[in-house]
């Protein structure tokens, strides 16, 4: 008793993607199981770990499959599972982590980008050390405006698969350390503004700093889907469109 609840509390407080399965019918009514996407001693398949018991191995297996699907879809689901000729109803409740867009560079593109991101339900954080860019006037619509060096600000945050990081400063002194820091974490999306030529230079700098090619490949650059646009609003739209594309095609975390 309380072990399962404590595990649920911990997963939710850590804002971790997880599913809570509850049996709604049959002898097992009220039984519960927490399903997380992590390796643990009680593995139920690739990358799933569970806490608690539904009282029946076949039921737990079926529940874990549905839980994995619900986590992938990021939506709660009501399902039935047939076990030994009995049909049992399950609720698969899903805790979806808050998605956050971290924008490094309080530049013009960042203004419409914050608007679009908020419309899509993302928490928005704008970081820039330069006081003339990072004004409350320009970013009153952002959830957070942080006036400091990007790398310092990033160190204060949790960068997980629900965190999307874009660097837009046009200043490698600001962008590159932020990128190096983000690449060292499992951020769900990392994009860097700049032409192909700028990016080629950046890649050389990153390699010199000891970042592996595999990590460098995670950077979306030139940033955004190619919509053929040039204005700040159109570029912001192409960036947010790319983030939406990436999050919808999301692969199994840790796979």
């Amino acid at each position: 008793m309380a072990e399962l609840f404590n595990a649920v509390v911990q997963a939710i407080r850590q804002d971790e993607l997880c599913a809570i399965v509850t049996v709604l019918s049959g002898d097992e009514i009220g039984r519960k199981m927490l399903v997380r996407r992590r390796r643990g001693p009680d593995e139920r398949g690739p990358n799933l770990a569970t806490v608690g018991s539904l009282g029946n191995a076949a039921l737990e297996h079926g529940a874990a499959v549905h839980a994995a699907e619900a986590m992938e879809a990021r939506r709660a689901n009501r399902v039935s599972v047939t076990v030994e000729d009995r049909e049992l109803d399950l609720l698969i409740d899903v805790h979806v982590p808050q998605e956050t867009l971290v924008i490094v560079g309080a530049v013009h593109i960042a203004i419409p980008l914050v608007t679009f991101a908020r419309e899509l339900g993302l928490h928005t954080v704008v970081i820039d050390a330069r006081p003339i860019f990072a004004t409350q006037d320009r970013f009153d619509h952002a959830d957070e405006l942080i006036r400091s060096w990007p790398e310092d600000a990033l160190r204060e945050m949790t960068l997980n698969e629900s965190t999307y990081v874009v660097t837009l400063t046009h200043d490698e002194k600001l962008d590159t350390p932020a990128l190096i820091y983000a690449l060292d974490h499992p951020a769900g999306y990392i994009g860097a503004l700049g032409s192909k030529r700028t990016h080629a230079k950046r890649v050389a700098v990153l390699r010199e700093a000891g970042v592996s090619d595999e990590q460098i490949d995670r950077i979306h650059a030139p940033i955004g889907l190619d919509l053929g646009g040039r204005g700040p609003e159109e570029i912001a739209l192409s960036i947010i469109a790319e983030i939406v594309q990436v999050r919808n095609n999301r692969k199994e975390v840790g796979a």
């Binding site: 609840f5 509850t22 009220g30 519960k32 608690g52």
Partner: peptide, 8 residues
């Protein structure tokens, strides 16, 4: 609505 004692 499923109503349960939180005893887990």
């Amino acid at each position: 609505v499923f109503i349960e004692p939180l005893d887990w």
